[in-house]
Design a protein around this nucleic acid. Structure first.
Lengths: 196, 196, 196, 196
DNA sequence: AATGAATGAGCGTTCATTCAT
DNA sequence: TATGAATGAACGCTCATTCAT
């Protein structure tokens, strides 16, 4: 069945090309014509692969939420101490800053539009993605505590959001290093006190 | 003897009523008719007070960015230790969760649309708001370090973002308390080590 | 009854101020707000004196069609020969070029809008004006022949129209003088031939 | 394999269908919906072929100003004397009275709207058309004198304007015949006097 | 599979007009 | 009398979507 493979693969290629456009303009402000043009196809072709603008957007979100977290984390592996891990995370954020900002735009946009609907498959798509992130974070940082994982994820989200808001004074590496120090001290203390 | 209306005050009243609507649908997806209806006025009246949808949105952002941070922080005052302060912050976030989520939606939306323009007065409106937040945070927590202030703000932003994404497992009080502990330990340690 | 006099006189003043505005933009393109602003009054006041935009326009046309032709022709009197009369007419056209062009704009506009209606009082307003012009022309030029009067009026209309179209090469005096010569020769010839 | 349509040709067909509508209502008073309906297409299709109402109007004026004058004059050829020529012109005017009146409405309308702009290409479109008319008139009547050509054109314009104003007593043939006589006499006289 | 012409509901905005003051 | 705030139908125009090719 080579045809189906082609069709599906081409669909995914188109989805990837969509990402920037949706991130820049937002779901409500971008038009199907602009999307088609940005992809170098006609509107007819666009509708050949996606049944509606909404479907296109949902598939895009699905796609980016499925981009394998573990693959990304592979880049971060090989750190021995928490401090090193956090420094590596900081560098990783700097390197992919643009991508994470776009990702945040798309994700927030998606949430906004979910509200006004029946949250069709929000929970599934969404929460699965979030869980994967949490698990990856736990694994990477060698942390088991779910609250602590949430804590770290929130902090990273917040850093990106701050950058998205145009605060150029934020330094990802500096901030992550700071978190690293705090975590180290905190975990030591915790161990000590729990021993006591 | 014209009809007596305090033009400017009524304008601000309308702005306040806009907030929820823009937060729920987003700039690109809400229509002027919906806004007018939501405010209980006609589209004509809407345009009597705002020259365009864009102007309305910008004035809304200006308005909400001017809502006095200090007034909000008054509610948080009276804490003695950092731990108490963070716990109070947690409770405050819980209490105003909806507002902060909406605020985030509007702000992100605004950033997205600023990109495609000359950022007219973005810096002024925007950065002033951010600075006010940082200063308030410093004052409230008794922290001078700007990096640390950014750290805390990022964390709070991230918490809200996490909730905005639908993660209902996050507990603001728990998370803030955790941050309180970490900060306490970290600052103690820092003092100790700098003394040593 | 001083009040009624005031009211009516003010109404006519307003009408006069309208003329330029209607001439420049045309009935369909000018707005009541623009008219009110151009007159230095509010829209409310405008509607206090005129029941509708249409009524305003009709009264304007009525007004300018009633501006006394004879008064204008007084300026032209005192010529002895047809040649002199035509030269005087030429100078008169040059002097009032702007007014006649505006007059033509308004008049054509009015005709265009009459078509789509029941020609309410078009005939009366309109044809009376035209008849007055013809009579004045006959008297001024000492011509009895109605066909000849139409001929001359048409020519004058055409001159103005040509100017309205932007043909700046047209010289009213030159053209009127030419018509003077032609009429002189023609009438002589005619007399001669009818005598013969 | 897209739907096969000769875009440019269809555009011109649509333009031709516009003429009557613009002539009857005027640029400012006709709506795009009315135009679309009058053409038997949707507003969307209208905008597929014309970028704006203004562009549509300008292209219409361009189109009708390019309609070849010489083709029209072909119908008038074959006259031997000036008298015959003028009589033929009169009959031609009678025959095309409606068209010329509409043409005048559109042209005057166009002039009115040009005033408020930078007269983009008015001069070119406009003056070229006028020149063509003058040349055609000269050729047709065997007249070289530019002043005389302007004289005749003005007269013809004036005749049409008189009809446009609703003067139904005007007889094109009668008037043109009169002009023919006057020209004949005048030119004879001129020759005589210049010989003398 | 791919195109782009076609649609008409709906968008942001403006309009003539009304009415409380 | 005079104002300008208020209205909502209608404007020019755009949109997601369909369909003939």
């Amino acid at each position: 069945m080579p045809k189906i493979v082609d069709h599906d693969q081409y669909r995914k290629e188109l989805l990837c090309k969509c990402f920037d456009l949706f991130a820049q303009k937002g779901y409500g402000s971008i038009t199907m014509r602009q999307i088609a043009q940005g992809m170098g196809v006609s509107t007819g072709t666009l509708y050949h692969y996606f049944s509606s603008k909404e479907a296109l957007f949902e598939q895009l979100v699905e796609e980016i939420s499925q981009q394998d977290v573990s693959a990304a984390l592979a880049e971060l592996e090989g750190t021995e101490t928490l401090q090193e891990a956090m420094a590596a995370l900081g560098r990783y954020l700097v390197k992919n800053e643009d991508y994470f900002i776009k990702w945040t735009f798309v994700w927030v946009d998606f949430c906004q539009h979910q509200d006004s609907k029946k949250m069709l498959n929000q929970s599934s798509v969404f929460k699965r993605a979030n869980q994967r992130y949490q698990q990856a974070a736990c694994k990477f940082l060698g942390v088991q505590d779910k609250v602590l994982a949430s804590f770290i994820l929130s902090f990273v989200n917040g850093l990106i959001l701050e950058k998205l808001w145009g605060d150029e004074t934020i330094d990802f590496v500096e901030q992550c290093t700071l978190l690293g120090k705090m975590l180290t001290v905190y975990l030591q203390q915790n161990v000590t006190s729990s021993v006591n």
